[in-house]
C-alpha cells in the first residue's frame, strides 16, 4: 500500500503536510504576517538567499563546534563516571541538577563572561548536548553483565582490561545513539543563544526579521534550521549504523 510503503513515505507525508498547510492558509484567508503559506516562505528563501545562507553557515558551525565539544567532553566524563561506582554516585546528582537548569537562563551569564558573539552560542550548544552523551556512555559501561566481567576478572584482568575489552566496545552503540539526540539539542542551544545575544546566525536573523514583521523570513529561518537538523541527524544515524552493526543484528543471519 502506498500509505505504508517505507521508502516513499517520508516524501509523501512531507508533501501532504505542505499541501494541507498551503490549502489551509488560502481557504482560511490567513494573513501572511500570521502564517505565511509554504509558497510564500519558498519565495522568501529565494529572495533573501544571500543572508539566509550566510547566517545558516554561522549557525551550522557554532552548533557543530558546541556539539564537538559535547562529544569529546561527554565521552570523557561518561568514561570517568562509568569507571567507578563512587564517582558515579558523586557526580550523578550534580549532573542531573545542572541539566535541569534551563539553558536560556545561562546565556546572560555567558554574555557577561564572553561578550556577545559566537562564543556563548557554542557554549550553550555544548551545555545542552553534553548531558545525553555522558548518560549514555555511563549507562553502557554500568550495564556490563556480571558474568562477562567475572570471566575476565577470574583470569586476572585489571579494571583497565575490563574497560577496554568489554566496557568501551559495549558502550559504543549507546554513545553513537546519543549523538543523534545530542546534535538536535545542540541546534536548540545555539539558536537559543543566538536569539538572545548574537550578531549573526539564524536565531539572530529571525529575531531581526520578526522586529520588522517580515514573518515569511522568520519562517524561512525555521525551515533552514529544520533542514540543517535533518541533515545532521541523518549523518549521525548513518555513523551509528556503520560503526555498531553488531548491535542491530536483525536480518543479518
Amino acid at each position: 500500500m502506498w500509505l505504508t510503503s517505507e521508502r516513499a513515505a517520508p516524501a509523501i507525508y512531507t508533501i501532504a503536510l505542505l499541501v494541507f498547510w498551503e490549502a489551509a492558509v488560502w481557504i482560511g484567508n490567513m494573513p501572511t504576517y500570521i502564517l505565511p503559506a509554504p509558497t510564500v516562505i519558498a519565495g522568501a528563501i529565494v529572495q533573501y538567499w544571500g543572508p539566509i545562507w550566510k547566517n545558516s553557515l554561522v549557525t551550522l558551525w557554532t552548533t557543530l563546534a558546541g556539539f564537538g565539544l559535547a562529544v569529546v567532553g561527554g565521552l570523557a566524563l561518561g568514561l570517568l563516571v562509568g569507571w567507578s561506582k563512587s564517582i558515579y554516585a558523586g557526580l550523578y546528582p550534580l549532573m542531573v541538577g545542572f541539566n535541569s537548569i534551563p539553558k536560556v537562563a545561562v546565556v546572560p551569564i555567558l554574555v557577561i563572561w564572553f561578550g556577545i558573539g559566537v562564543v556563548p552560542a557554542i557554549i550553550t550548544a555544548f551545555l545542552i548536548a553534553f548531558f545525553p552523551v555522558v548518560v549514555n556512555v555511563a549507562t553502557g559501561l554500568a550495564t556490563i553483565e556480571p558474568e562477562t566481567e567475572d570471566v575476565l576478572r577470574a583470569l586476572g584482568a585489571s579494571k583497565w582490561d575490563v574497560m577496554t575489552k568489554i566496557g568501551i566496545p559495549r558502550a559504543l552503540p549507546y554513545f553513537f545513539g546519543s549523538l543523534k539526540v545530542a546534535i538536535t539539542l545542540a541546534f536548540v542551544g545555539s539558536v537559543v543563544s543566538e536569539t538572545i545575544a548574537a550578531n549573526a546566525g539564524l536565531g539572530h536573523m529571525m529575531l531581526a526579521a520578526q522586529s520588522q514583521f517580515n514573518v515569511p523570513l522568520v519562517f524561512a529561518g525555521l525551515v533552514m534550521l529544520a533542514i540543517e537538523g535533518i541533515v545532521m541527524y541523518a549523518i549521525m544515524a548513518e555513523i551509528e549504523k556503520r560503526t555498531t552493526g553488531w548491535a542491530r543484528r536483525s536480518g543479518q543471519t
Binding site: 553483565e145 562477562t148 567475572d150 570471566v151 583470569l155 586476572g156 566496545p169 559495549r170 553488531w246 548491535a247
Partner: peptide
C-alpha cells in the same frame, strides 16, 4: 589465571 570458567549464559561478546 590457571582456571577457566564457563557459565550458563555463554556471554560471548557480540562485537
Amino acid at each position: 589465571s590457571i582456571t577457566g570458567m564457563a557459565f550458563q549464559n555463554p556471554s560471548l561478546l557480540p562485537w
